[in-house]
Structure formats: C-alpha cells, structure tokens
Design a protein around this nucleic acid. Structure first.
Length: 279
DNA sequence: CCTTGAACCTGCGGGC
DNA sequence: TGCCCGCAGGTTCAAG
C-alpha cells in the first residue's frame, strides 16, 4: 500500500495526537507481523512518552523518552487509525497503543507484511533497516547528478531502479509509473542510460508527483486510510496507473489503433506507461 | 557486488 | 452460490 505520500500523511495525522503523550496500556494481539514483535514490546512501551511522530523513507518513527524509537512499517495493506476511548478491536487489529489522552492508536494490517521494531534513537541511521538507504526524494540531497551517479553502470530497467530504496527512498509501484510518465522516460529504459538532462527531469518528476500526492492526502486504492480514517484523494490524479487502454492526456492518436496506455510486468509488478510519449 | 525470481499473507473481483 | 485464478500500495532472501 503506502508509499512516501501515504506514510507522510499518516505521520502528519498521528503527530498532533501522539506528541508528548504517554503510553498507558499496550494491547499486543498477535506475536508479530512480517517479523515477530520485539521481545517485551508491551513492557518496554508501557509508561514511555512519545516525543513526536516522523517519517524516514516509508517508515514511521516514534522517538520516545527511553532512548528508543518505536519504528513501524505499513507494508502493503497496513493502516494506523486514531480511535476514541473504549474502542473495540476488529479483525486484523494487531497492536493497539492506549495514550494518556484517552486515544487508542490502532495498527491494522490484513496481509501482515508490515513490521514493528525498536531501535536506539541515537544510532537510528546505522540500524540495519536504514543503513543502506538512499536519499529522501524531497530533500536537497536528491538531485539530478546524485541520481545519475547512483544509476551509472546499472543494467536494470529504470522503473525497477527508482523503486530500489538504495537509489532513492519512498517511491513505490504507483508513483514510479506516474513519475516516469511525467518525465517522458520509458520504464523499460536501461537505468544506466538515465544521465544528464534525463536524470534531472526524472528527479523533478519524482518530487512533483510526491508533493502533489501528499497535498491530496495520498492515494486510497483499497486498504490505505489517513489516520482519521478518511480516504486519500490522489488516486483521482493518476495519469497512467491503472489506466490500461485509455488515452493519455493530450494524446491525439486513436486509442482504438494504438491501444492507449499499456500495462506490462516488470520485476513481478505492474507498470503502466505510454509507449509513444515515453522513450 | 549485481540481478532475478520467489516467498510472505489475506481479500477481492472476474470468469465459469 | 461456489471455486479457481489473477491481482494488490513492499520488503527480504536465496540463487545464479
């Protein structure tokens, strides 16, 4: 499910509710998700005060006053909702944090591809999960030359490369297709050939698409919800994702003849693009 | 080191 | 109605 815009939206929804709050009860409803929950998770969290909520890549970080940071990842189908006091758990609610303001923070994930772990706050960046990560796409550390250099010599197709979190973080299957369309680059292009102007265009496209998606509160296809339970709206802003056979904007060609937007599979994932506009 | 493909898990929609 | 298939926003691991 969630790519950078969705995770960012969830963090923005959680922060005002959780900032400075103390965890007064922890409901661990199964042994783990993709990975087992840390040993003694409930005991560790009990009584801890959350400093604030922030995002790194597609991870949600909750640094606490115990020198540890609670780290959550939503995987494919995860959501985190703010509920009121007296909330009754439903199917796939796996972890619930009760706060001293009466709110319940509920992590629900049907496919259980999400994860929850604890990491030392002062050495977060050296944690296994973050060590090899590429730059944040919306930061100054991400630029045409930086991307070009990361892609140099790579043989994989560009679509696969920009979803590789070591190249740049936060871009997933939807925004990869959308960004490549915006940049006019074929998803099948050998990534090492994306240099110079092409790399610059792709960087600008990735930034633009992610910013616009954040403004819309992310994209709700099936599972994803904002922390208040409402839908994101950027799915209405897709140009190519899921638009197989439709004309792309401004395309004057006859869709009946050209087939319009095409769906292919790369690395086991669907890719959508316009073979005429993307080279 | 790079690249590829499979695996993890549940749910939904389409075709028969 | 039921069954089977393919598909779904991510990451990790093994093997070549």
């Amino acid at each position: 499910m969630p790519e950078l815009p969705e995770v960012e939206t969830v963090c923005r929804g959680l922060d005002p509710v959780m900032r400075g709050r103390t965890i007064v009860a922890v409901d661990v409803r199964r042994a783990g998700l993709r990975d087992p929950f840390p040993k003694g998770l409930a005991k560790t969290l009990m009584g801890a005060k959350i400093a604030h909520v922030m995002r790194r890549a597609k991870y949600i970080l909750m640094p606490m006053d115990i020198d540890q940071t609670l780290v959550l990842h939503l995987g494919m189908s995860g959501r985190i909702l703010v509920q009121e006091e007296g909330y009754r758990p439903v199917k796939h609610d796996h972890l619930i944090l009760h706060l001293d303001n009466g709110r319940a923070i509920v992590f629900n994930d049907p496919r259980r591809s999400g994860t929850v772990f604890l990491a030392k706050t002062d050495s977060l960046e050296t944690h296994k999960a973050f060590r090899a990560m590429g730059p944040e796409p919306l930061s100054n550390e991400f630029s045409g030359p930086v991307l070009a250099s990361a892609l140099k010599g790579r043989k994989t197709e560009i679509k696969t490369a920009i979803m590789d979190q070591r190249i740049v973080v936060g871009v997933g299957n939807i925004y990869a297709s959308e960004a490549l369309f915006m940049a006019g680059i074929s998803p099948k292009r050998v990534s090492g050939t994306v240099q110079g102007e092409k790399a610059e265009a792709l960087v600008q496209a990735i930034r633009q698409i992610l910013r616009r998606a954040i403004k819309a509160g992310g994209s709700s296809l099936r599972d994803y919800r904002k922390a208040d339970g409402k839908l994101g709206l950027f799915q209405h802003g897709f140009t190519v994702y899921g638009h197989t056979g439709k004309a792309c904007p401004g395309c004057t060609c006859d869709v009946g003849k050209t087939g319009g937007i095409k769906r292919i599979v790369q690395g086991g994932r669907s890719t959508f693009y316009c073979p005429r506009k993307q080279k």
